[in-house]
């Protein structure tokens, strides 16, 4: 998922003084928010929960901004991967703590709050709905890996950094997730 323009903006934002760096971070967050919310929506399958995850992710990103090291050669982590890692941890924390655990895996109606705009709306909305339901039916760890690979073009290494497990585990989770997704879509009659 390398977004080279974003990464150069991140490096520029880190290079300026502290006050300017914070306002540059706000601009970066504004830019990356739709992607972050897209990830959180598919991870949580719940619009309210996804917004809560994004909010807490941004708070942690702002407070931890000074500790963040952008990609330089083989060191560091991309800004988006860093945010996604925080979001994944925030969601885990919420799942652990919250009494709303029961609703956290429930798919939101209307394609999980992803607003539709395509011309063939009817077909698309059925497919979206089925897809969100199928995603929601996957185990949480498999879902995160599948979403990162499918929608954010993450490499296995990036996914392993985001979800905090070895690359081999990422591969096997992806395999199980794809097979489970296929079964879920079959069961819903869209495949």
């Amino acid at each position: 998922m390398p977004d080279h323009e974003l990464e150069s903006l991140v490096i520029a934002a880190k290079a300026v003084d502290r006050a300017a760096s914070t306002s540059a971070l706000e601009a970066l967050l504004t830019r990356v928010y739709p992607r972050l919310l897209g990830y959180a929506l598919k991870l949580t399958c719940n619009r309210c929960l996804a917004e809560e995850v994004c909010q807490e992710t941004m708070v942690r990103a702002i407070t931890g901004w000074r500790r963040y090291r952008p990609v330089r050669g083989r060191a560091g982590v991309s800004f988006q991967a860093w945010l996604f890692r925080i979001a994944t941890n925030v969601y885990r924390d919420i799942r652990r703590k919250s009494a709303r655990t029961a609703s956290a895996g429930r798919p939101a109606p209307g394609g999980g709050g992803l607003a539709a705009s395509a011309e063939d709306e009817a077909i698309h909305s059925i497919e979206r709905e089925a897809m969100m339901e199928a995603l929601a039916a996957l185990p949480e760890e498999q879902r995160a890996v599948l979403v990162l690979r499918t929608y954010h073009d993450c490499s296995y290494r990036e996914i392993s950094e985001i979800v905090g497990c070895p690359e081999g585990t990422v591969k096997s989770r992806l395999h199980y997730a794809v097979l489970a997704l296929r079964e879920e879509l079959r069961r819903r009659g869209v495949l």
Partner: peptide, 16 residues
């Protein structure tokens, strides 16, 4: 491949 195509029905970014 069909599963992958269906997965593409969801946009990567949320419309906001």
């Amino acid at each position: 491949v069909a599963t992958r195509r269906l997965a593409g029905a969801l946009p990567a970014e949320a419309e906001v």
